[in-house]
Design a binder for these strands. Structure first.
Length: 644
RNA sequence: GCCGAUGUAGCUCAGUUGGUCAGAGCAGCUGAUUUGUAAUCAGCUGGCCGGGGGUUCGAAUCCCUCCAUCGGCUCCA
């Protein structure tokens, strides 16, 4: 007999060799019907694998992440089986589950699949699912496995197996389709009740640009038809929040092919929004001891040779601008840090002067690959809320923590709760990608890890994601469709101070090298605004929104009073418009609601007589009659409440 | 950059197998209306059907190419 510990810590005795499915059946009929996989001592396994030792287990259903993962992983196999039936000769790469569904990378030879073919494949998947094909696991010695795929002519699987350690390799067979796979899988295909193929994409074999591009087919499955319907509705809703759509509707920004792709044009409303954000951050930074600086949009090639950017990115940048007579070469500024290093060098600093914090909303230009451009989140010209802190080595941790505080303060003010934190370290096996000594890197990475721990942030550590000059702490958020974007970033850098030979005079009257912290809480204003638009679905907080109120006169007769109200509100610095069209009030309200203006002030006979406004709040409705002073106070109170 | 898809008025979209197929709604303009909490009525303007080339008696529709956009991949200082 073995002891099985259930998630509620109760321990039950079972005969050795019992399976997950049998345990589920012993608990309840319903659980047995819904269970998808089992986690045994932290490892997700097939429900029909015997358990032979004492173990802590968890039975995973659709409501568990691991249950969904098992379902989707198995679905990928079924999709592959369907594709193999419909497109004989297809070769298969990898087919994992992902956050929302699964994909399979396939090589169709000279054939291709497009969304027109999806319904045929979906039907075939459901047909296989209904056959209730069991997933049968077999372990095969490595050389036999290689033989199997060599005979089949599937070079991708041969490639995968060749990289595996010698020994036995597990395979799963369902119906006619056998796949190299670690598992785990469903007991059989029957839980798959609804399927939707989402899109196809090109994907390089093993993520390597120099290798062949396979066709990646994305799909998602559900145990109930209704869930698929809900998922598709959710996707539709998410699309409504897309910043590209709202940006057009609210006239925030636009692109022009004539100006150039990836070069955003900020329209008046968008510029207002952005300026409000900038004002907010400038205030925060001034309080935190930052000094504004301004540097030009281009810089001499030598500047970037010194910084190392030329070596690293010179080839992939906008190509240099040459002066007509001297042939001197200049680059469009891709980074502010080299300029800020030179600003630091203008003056001699004592150890008592540090830290020096130089801040600039610096617009930078980077040649992003055309296929990478995406609305405002990935552009070729953007403005960083950049600053560089030059400090003594003993100040690094304290300064780093202060920056984390600024980022968190900003996220809190903007109601961004759903972010993740990532520590990006150097890839220790590919050191040639980076500049600087091992010693400097170790110090920098240690500083980030310690500061993050001290702030109690739970950060994911990813190696190989560091900048070429130093490790980073990145703040990531998801967009409406779940795509991850990096916003704030804080980087510790011992290398650029070396390259620029930055110095300060220590208490020992000797020259010392400062440490640099690169930091940008928003990251890029463009990207930040994009994410903000999606976060608020265009309903910005009152202090940020371009237009805070709109006055709606009932008829032309009250135009004079409306203008009087406008003047009063302007004096109180409430951003206010008037809708003077000879439209009915209902129409004016509708249009103001569509424009997502927070307050509508309706003025007619009563209001003029009583020196009041009738206030309607966006999305909420009529709030009743207010004197101008009362309304102003309400606006100010709300702004203060949001910004405190 | 790569794979795939898309591109019709400012916006959202119709346009059957190439043959009155250049349309609708909203927006805009003009006029009427003077309006009380999500759409007043009427009239009108507006498009080289992304650009260029080709096939055809004839192309929004088929082919080639370029550009842009969308979904991914790769990249992201």
């Amino acid at each position: 007999m073995i002891n099985i510990t259930l998630p509620d810590q109760t321990i039950r005795e079972f005969p050795s060799g019992i399976t997950g499915m049998e345990i589920a059946q012993s608990i309840s009929e319903g659980l047995a019907r819904n269970v998808l996989s089992i986690t045994v001592n932290g490892e997700v396994m097939d429900l029909n694998r015997p358990i032979t030792t004492d173990a802590a287990i968890k039975l995973n259903t659709w409501d568990d992440k691991d249950g969904k993962a098992t379902m989707w992983h198995s679905s990928a196999h079924i999709m592959a089986a369907a594709i193999e039936e419909l497109y004989p000769g297809t070769k298969f790469g990898i087919g994992p589950d992902v956050e929302n569904g699964f994909y399979y990378d396939i090589d169709l030879g000279d054939k291709s699949i497009s969304s027109n073919d999806f319904s045929e494949i979906e039907d075939k998947i459901l047909e296989i699912a209904r056959r209730k094909e069991p997933f049968i696991r077999t372990d095969i010695p490595k050389n036999e496995a290689l033989e199997f795929y060599r005979a089949k002519g599937d070079e991708y699987k041969v490639d995968l197996i060749s990289d595996l350690e010698d020994g036995t390799i597990s395979f799963y067979k369902s119906g006619h389709f056998t796949d190299l796979c670690r598992g785990p899988h469903l007991v059989d295909t029957s839980p798959i009740k609804a399927v939707k193929l989402l899109n196809t994409a090109g994907a390089y074999w093993r993520g390597d640009e120099s290798r062949k591009q396979l066709t990646r087919v994305y799909g998602i499955t559900f145990p109930k038809q209704k869930m698929l319907k809900e998922y598709l509705e959710m996707l539709e809703e998410a699309k409504k929040r897309d910043h590209r759509k709202i940006g057009r509707e609210l006239e925030l920004f636009a692109f022009s092919a004539k100006v150039g792709q990836g070069l955003p044009l900020w329209l008046p409303k968008g510029a207002e929004l952005r300026e409000n954000l900038e004002k907010f951050l400038k205030k925060v930074q001034r309080k935190a001891g930052y000094q504004p600086v301004i540097s030009p949009h281009i810089g001499n090639k030598n500047l970037y040779i010194t910084s190392g950017h030329y070596d690293k990115y010179g080839e992939d940048s906008f190509q240099p601008i040459s002066t007509p007579s001297e042939g001197e070469e200049f680059f469009l500024k891709p980074m502010n840090c080299p300029h800020h290093c030179e600003i630091y060098k203008i003056k001699q600093y004592s150890y008592k002067d540090l830290p020096v914090r130089l801040a600039e909303f610096g617009t930078v230009y980077r040649y992003e690959q055309s296929g990478e451009l995406h609305g405002l989140t990935r552009v070729r010209g953007f403005t960083q809320d950049d600053a560089h802190i030059f400090c003594r080595p003993d100040q690094v941790k304290e300064e780093f923590i202060a920056v984390i505080d600024i980022v968190l303060h900003i996220f809190r003010a903007l109601d961004f709760n759903d972010y993740s934190v990532q520590i990006s370290l150097r890839d220790p096996v590919n050191k040639e990608k980076y500049i600087g000594s091992d010693e400097n890197w170790e110090k920098a990475e240690k500083a980030i890890i310690e500061a993050t721990r001290e702030k109690g942030l739970s950060a994911e550590v990813v190696t190989g994601e560091a900048a070429f000059y130093g490790p980073k702490l990145d703040f990531m958020v998801n967009d409406a469709l779940g795509r991850k974007w990096q916003l704030g970033t804080i980087q510790v850098d011992y290398n650029l101070p070396d390259r620029f030979e930055l110095e300060y005079i220590g208490s020992d009257n000797q020259k010392h090298r400062p440490v640099m912290i690169h930091r940008a809480p928003f990251g890029s204003l463009e990207r930040f605004v994009a994410v903000m638009i999606e976060h608020y679905a265009g309903n910005f907080p009152l202090w940020l929104t371009p237009d805070q109120a709109i006055i709606l006169p009932i008829s032309d007769k009250y135009a004079d009073y409306a203008k009087k109200v406008l003047n009063l509100l302007n004096n109180y610095e409430i951003r206010t418009l008037i809708d003077e069209r000879s439209e009915k009030t209902g129409k004016k309200i509708r249009d103001a609601e569509t424009r997502k203006i927070p307050f509508m002030l309706i003025v007619g006979e009563k209001e003029e007589a009583g020196e009041t406004v009738s206030v309607r709040k966006h999305g909420e409705g009529d709030l009743g009659s207010f004197s101008i002073e009362e309304f102003v106070k309400m606006v100010e109170d709300e702004v203060n409440r949001l910004l405190q």
